[in-house]
Design a protein around this nucleic acid. Sequence first.
DNA 1: CATGAATGAGATTTCATTCAT
DNA 2: GATGAATGAAATCTCATTCAT
Lengths: 209, 209, 209, 209
Amino acid sequence: MRSDEQRPLGRPRASDQTQPTTESITEAATQLFTKNGYQTVSVNDVAKQCNVTKATIYYYFPSKAELFTETMVQMMIRIRKRINAMLHEPIPLKSRLYNITKTHLSATVDIDINGFMKGTTHTLSPEQLERINKAEMDMYQSIEQVFTHAMEQKEIREINPVFATHAYLSLLKVGNYNNEKQAKIYDSIDEMAEQIIELFWEGVQIKES
Amino acid sequence: MRSDEQRPLGRPRASDQTQPTTESITEAATQLFTKNGYQTVSVNDVAKQCNVTKATIYYYFPSKAELFTETMVQMMIRIRKRINAMLHEPIPLKSRLYNITKTHLSATVDIDINGFMKGTTHTLSPEQLERINKAEMDMYQSIEQVFTHAMEQKEIREINPVFATHAYLSLLKVGNYNNEKQAKIYDSIDEMAEQIIELFWEGVQIKES
Amino acid sequence: MRSDEQRPLGRPRASDQTQPTTESITEAATQLFTKNGYQTVSVNDVAKQCNVTKATIYYYFPSKAELFTETMVQMMIRIRKRINAMLHEPIPLKSRLYNITKTHLSATVDIDINGFMKGTTHTLSPEQLERINKAEMDMYQSIEQVFTHAMEQKEIREINPVFATHAYLSLLKVGNYNNEKQAKIYDSIDEMAEQIIELFWEGVQIKES
Amino acid sequence: MRSDEQRPLGRPRASDQTQPTTESITEAATQLFTKNGYQTVSVNDVAKQCNVTKATIYYYFPSKAELFTETMVQMMIRIRKRINAMLHEPIPLKSRLYNITKTHLSATVDIDINGFMKGTTHTLSPEQLERINKAEMDMYQSIEQVFTHAMEQKEIREINPVFATHAYLSLLKVGNYNNEKQAKIYDSIDEMAEQIIELFWEGVQIKES
DNA sequence: CATGAATGAGATTTCATTCAT
DNA sequence: GATGAATGAAATCTCATTCAT
């Protein structure tokens, strides 16, 4: 179809292979879904973004809902891994959180699950909702565990670890807000991260009486 | 569900009016949009919820986008007023925040603007986006002012008031999370509010050196 | 509703009365229908143009189709009268036709019945179509008679008078074309009229053998 | 009319294809639009006429306006070609015009552009209007050139060729009128054509003084 | 006399999905 | 493995029309 760029004969070299189709699709889907939400993004949008046709997507995924589910779950698994790695470095908890914060603020994808789940409840099957939910929970769990551990070590004060986790992640989103709106709160990611950690850390620190 | 109360053509008799139609529409729209987001909710959904037809909605609002915009703006104005009133009671800032938190957690509507704005950027006109944006900013501003004032009064530590505002509101959303998911973090709203305020307050308090 | 322009008390003076409502409606309708055709013009368009509401139009006319029919018929009656008057002045036929042509070219309304009747066949009732048809025929008839008479007087050659009529009116429309398109054929109405009559007259003249 | 030949989902089998779908669509559209005008004809009407669904039409044409534009332009190109061919046969101009007239009167499609353009100005984009306009102009141009040439050859008298063109086409439409109304002017197409050419030719002939 | 409120039917358009190739 | 062609269902929006006031 693109006759101007004739492909040479023979098996293409490995380096020429850019990416298996499934991956291009998932990648495009991740980007679009997290940015615009489930309803707004059409299967065609995803197809265009990765230069295939709608039908190709249906060759790999049985439905839009499934594509979304898979995409979301995979994304959360990736995020969990990334967080997990940083969560177990041999440095003080505050520093670990600081690093995670910085990494997250520089990442393009958003962690605001609730945001792009808006309005999927009626469309996704219970089983799919459950899978996403599980992935989300898993993502939180390692953080919760770290908080629980830190509490035992008296590194932080007595606090519901689930609450602490959500409070922390919630504050992370303030950083995302920073990116989207025209009026930035802080100029640099570093400063933003520092302020977030500062507030959170004071909030969960052991109170000196 | 429809045929039991088939409304006749033409103008309805004046007698049994309980609420002006515009209000029923806005009310239904607020509920649906905040719960499910812009794209998911169809004009027909709104119509059904308030027992009128699609056409009636288009009689009052020129387009879905405009209905959404109006609804969001009005909602934010209401929230701002409510917050504003509580923000200026003659009690310590921490108590005022606690009250706001409690009120907000018991309210049905959500403050997670970013959430239901997902995917509206392509659909709403720049002018509409701007209106919503302004209403959002206005909503934040009074909180910002209170923080600025509190800083001057040495009630809280030196901190960017915009950041403080967003951090506070972000933590509020942890409460909404509490409502939606099956696994509640805390059983009572009071406890939830206490924990939120506790964390936030420690985070912004003047540090004793 | 327009509080800035308070109407004085008492019965308004006769001169203040601008026009009976029916007439404003017919006038507006004539303008819009002839310019844009039946389907394109909504009842609301007509209402706006004459500063009343849709309901008012329905107070005077039972349906859009009827409004259209009435409007068209009245318009054709007016045109017929105008043509008729000029058709019986005591001057040579060629001059009479020239005058009619000039008058018609300066008039705003269009005589291209077929044009704005496009697509009304399915919408108008047979009876309404018939009324319009009759008015159209009546409009033509007086011209036909004049041609028949002229033939008897050997003022023009033997020719089917119905054909002559339509040929003449057809040529008239060339003038309307002149108005609408950007590239005018002739600058002045006079010149246009002259050329039309010249061509037509030569075409129907008695051939000198 | 629908249920007897319920077409299954998906791509149809290749075997029994008589005509590419695009062509069926354009054909149906040409017929309907020229007969009933833009506004009256719904996309569904076109779809039904060529036994596909609305969605299929939108698969090939991005909008109704575009379908209309394409249809009109293609039709005018076809007409132009047909006229052009006859316009350059090596016979006297009067005979060529006679042939064109006869052919046109037997054709089903109408040349009355203004007629089915009624009310499209507000709906079509300027670019679409421009395309149609250009096709129309192109259609006229070859006729104009022939008249200009004939004038130089003293085959016809001095006359504005644009005017002559429109006058000729206008007279052609008298023939269409003949077809539509119940009361025919002449019984046979041949006679109609003769009369039209007779009138026109006398009208543009060199005057013997 | 005139209008505001409401509706039913239908128009245009989008989109997830299917299927033969 | 990938795609072009086609569709059904639904969404947004328009409009002629009705009716109580």
